[in-house]
Amino acid sequence: MRKSSAWHALTAAVAIGALVLQTALVIEGASVLVDENPPTLATRLIRLVAYFTIQSNLLIAIASFLLARDPSRDGTRFRSLRLAGIVGITVTGLVHFFLLRPLLDLEGASYVADKLLHMVVPALAVIGWIAFGPRPRVERRAIEVSLAWPIAWLVVILVAGAATDWFPYPFLDYDEKGWGSVIVVCVAITALFGAVIALYRYADRKLRT
């Protein structure tokens, strides 16, 4: 239990630290996907929260903090939070590595924040889930929430993008990429979420903690 609590505490601390660092950079005018004409502070902060990376790291931070206090924590709401967080952070790491990483050329604190949010936190979260669980925790309600969240996020981003002409990720910009490409990407992302959820559901039944 001590090892589990310590690992979850470490994960929460790194996630919170990464979120604070990224927020500070945004306040200063820096961002992961840099704009040539920086918007107002309020707009920058709203856009920061719109990033799926930020949302998934926030869920991991909350779930890990709760697990650090009680490694055997359970409950319907917590199961949904935990599964959504671990699935979201897994997809965050995969999408970053295969789609976004080649597009970025960061230095200094921006580089550190990027690696923490997209690589270190996902690694800590996944290792912690495999090693310490707790399990079983994957149930139907948690699965529904974990799939509904990214679908709702995609819908909101696409609708907001039509009004603001801003998209958190270039592969969702239908003005530049075209609707055909964006639809394919959305279907692929949804399928990826389904596959990751299925993998965690299988592992939840087979692994022991």
Results as ranks from 00 to 15, higher is better:
residue 171 F to G: 00
residue 134 P to E: 03
residue 183 I to P: 02
residue 72 S to A: 15
residue 104 L to C: 06
residue 79 R to G: 11
residue 19 L to C: 06
residue 13 A to R: 13
residue 52 F to G: 02
residue 188 A to Y: 13
residue 143 I to W: 00
residue 161 G to M: 11
residue 161 G to I: 04
residue 60 I to W: 01
residue 163 A to M: 13
residue 31 S to E: 09
residue 188 A to D: 01
residue 194 G to K: 08
residue 48 L to Q: 08
residue 97 F to I: 12
residue 195 A to Q: 11
residue 167 F to D: 11
residue 159 V to P: 09
residue 112 V to S: 01
residue 70 D to C: 00
residue 62 I to R: 01
residue 195 A to N: 07
residue 112 V to Q: 06
residue 9 A to K: 00
residue 136 P to D: 08
residue 165 D to M: 10
residue 138 V to E: 03
residue 170 P to H: 13
residue 192 L to H: 12
residue 37 N to E: 12
residue 42 A to N: 07
residue 137 R to G: 00
residue 134 P to K: 14
residue 36 E to F: 04
residue 60 I to N: 03
residue 53 T to Q: 01
residue 172 L to K: 00
residue 46 I to D: 12
residue 109 A to P: 00
residue 33 L to E: 08
residue 64 S to P: 09
residue 117 L to Y: 03
residue 169 Y to P: 05
residue 108 G to Y: 05
residue 95 V to H: 13
residue 34 V to Q: 15
residue 197 I to Q: 04
residue 161 G to Q: 09
residue 165 D to S: 14
residue 1 M to W: 08
residue 88 G to A: 12
residue 181 S to H: 11
residue 134 P to T: 15
residue 144 E to W: 08
residue 39 P to D: 11
residue 99 L to R: 04
residue 51 Y to R: 01
residue 150 P to N: 05
residue 183 I to E: 01
residue 145 V to A: 01
residue 79 R to N: 14
residue 138 V to D: 08
residue 155 V to I: 06
residue 15 A to C: 07
residue 146 S to H: 03
residue 81 L to Y: 10
residue 43 T to M: 06
residue 51 Y to P: 02
residue 65 F to G: 15
residue 166 W to R: 10
residue 176 E to C: 02
residue 58 L to C: 07
residue 187 V to Q: 06
residue 72 S to C: 03
residue 100 L to N: 10
residue 49 V to C: 01
residue 185 V to K: 15
residue 155 V to K: 12
residue 148 A to K: 07
residue 137 R to N: 01
residue 187 V to R: 15
residue 63 A to R: 04
residue 147 L to Y: 06
residue 124 L to R: 13
residue 151 I to Q: 06
residue 171 F to D: 01
residue 61 A to R: 12
residue 101 R to P: 02
residue 181 S to D: 12
residue 36 E to T: 11
residue 24 A to N: 03
residue 8 H to Q: 11
residue 25 L to F: 05
residue 31 S to P: 00
residue 84 A to S: 13
residue 66 L to I: 06
residue 206 K to H: 14
residue 56 S to R: 00
residue 20 V to F: 02
residue 178 G to E: 03
residue 132 F to H: 15
residue 142 A to T: 03
residue 17 G to N: 11
residue 112 V to Y: 10
residue 46 I to K: 07
residue 171 F to L: 14
residue 71 P to Y: 09
residue 111 Y to V: 00
residue 198 A to D: 10
residue 194 G to W: 10
residue 9 A to D: 12
residue 144 E to R: 13
residue 130 I to M: 15
residue 43 T to I: 12
residue 190 T to E: 07
residue 26 V to F: 03
residue 166 W to M: 13
residue 156 V to K: 02
residue 208 R to T: 10
residue 152 A to M: 14
residue 15 A to G: 04
residue 75 G to C: 11
residue 78 F to Y: 12
residue 96 H to L: 01
residue 116 L to F: 10
residue 167 F to A: 07
residue 76 T to L: 10
residue 16 I to Q: 04
residue 198 A to S: 12
residue 94 L to H: 11
residue 189 I to A: 11
residue 124 L to S: 14
residue 203 A to H: 08
residue 21 L to W: 02
residue 197 I to C: 10
residue 87 V to N: 06
residue 91 V to T: 04
residue 69 R to G: 07
